[in-house]
């Protein structure tokens, strides 16, 4: 049987730069690698991985960076990417593989687990090494966030995906040394049965949710698409923030899916999250619980959101929010 050693991270690159989830994975992977006294490797896959991203992978903690470039890898496609990660995972036989719980990770990690015949825990929020067995204790929210489960997998490699913003990256260390290893992996086109015909961008104007310091989120109780563009937007503008929503407004088409905050939407962690007419279902809380301050405005005093919030107002949002916005404007101008 092969010996399983080291930690491998599946890294992601956006616009030539290392994605923030990847620096988070490197931070957490570095800790395991140090604890196990083994190498931390990072895989970068793209049509062009460039120089910045591989270098940054080292700066943030990797010992070895494998770069795989191919024009066929320009866009993520499960059938091509799985060939690359399967090959490299088999060649390196790492003890641990970490991926982000991102659109790519969600699609790729299960394919890899079944190809390698190992187990997988998705969407983990906490991971530690069991001192006796050296196996990973993998903690993930279940039942839409109503409970958490700790898993252990004794099949190798131990594969997990990690929720964004739950792990801390290390400080940049530009003096760190490491090795970049360009790797050629031939993509076999014969098993490719899917073809991307077109991509359609649904524009969201203003600040991106992931970057917004303040998010004003609306729920089912908003009642329709209009208030997202008026009442909620005006409040967000005063605070230089962005408008988001829980799942019902997204499913009803009141807002584009890109504005959906929750377990199956975006995971955000702004300074301030203002939840308006949101009941506080666990699956929504999963998307915003990392916020520094949560403020709830809801007409139902029993709404679960008040169990999550730091500050709250009980009342109809149509009356509360405009007065809140006006007063804020006044205070911020003064």
């Amino acid at each position: 049987m092969a010996e399983y050693k080291g930690v491998l991270i599946f890294g992601e690159v956006t616009n030539g730069k290392l994605a923030s989830i990847t620096t988070e994975l490197l931070g957490c992977g570095r800790n395991f690698a140090d604890e196990l006294k083994e190498d931390l490797c990072c895989l970068l896959v793209s049509d062009k991985t460039g120089e910045t991203a591989p270098r940054d992978a080292i700066v943030f903690g990797a010992d070895k960076v494998y770069t795989v470039e191919d024009s066929l890898l320009k866009e993520y496609q499960g059938e091509t990417y799985i060939q690359v990660v399967e090959r490299l995972a088999k060649e390196l036989s790492p003890r641990v593989i970490l991926m982000g719980q991102t659109p790519v990770g969600r699609d790729l990690a299960p394919r890899l687990a079944f190809r390698l015949g190992t187990g997988l825990s998705t969407d983990c929020v906490d991971i530690s090494v069991d001192s006796e067995t050296k196996l990973l204790r993998q903690t993930k929210p279940v039942y839409g966030g109503n409970a958490q489960a700790i898993f252990i997998c004794d099949a190798m490699p131990q594969l997990v995906t990690i929720r964004a913003k739950t792990m801390s990256p290390r400080e940049r260390d530009d003096s760190r040394k490491g090795e970049v290893i360009p790797t050629k992996i031939e993509i076999n086109m014969s098993p490719i049965k899917t073809k991307i015909v077109e991509k359609v961008k649904e524009e969201v104007t203003g600040i991106k949710l992931e970057d917004a310091p303040v998010i004003v989120g609306g729920g089912r109780g908003i009642g329709g698409p209009e208030p997202f563009k008026t009442t909620l937007k005006e409040l967000a503008d005063v605070l230089h923030g962005a408008v988001g929503a829980s799942r019902p407004p997204a499913d009803n088409g009141w807002i584009p899916e890109a504005m959906h905050v929750g377990l199956t939407g975006k995971i955000v962690a702004p300074e301030i999250y203002i939840a308006i007419a949101i009941s506080g279902a666990s699956q929504h809380i999963a998307g915003c619980s990392g916020s520094k301050t949560i403020i709830a405005i809801n007409k139902d005093p029993e709404a679960n959101i008040f169990r999550e919030a730091n500050f709250g107002v009980v009342g109809r949002y149509e009356e509360v929010v405009p007065a809140f916005t006006t007063k804020l404007k006044e205070l911020l101008a003064g």
């Binding site: 500050f311 107002v313 009342g315 509360v320 929010v321 007065a323 809140f324 006006t326 007063k327 804020l328």
Partner: peptide, 12 residues
């Protein structure tokens, strides 16, 4: 409710 909204702003 409107006054509570304004008070929320003051509190924050």
């Amino acid at each position: 409710p409107a006054e509570a909204g304004a008070n929320l702003a003051i509190k924050l």
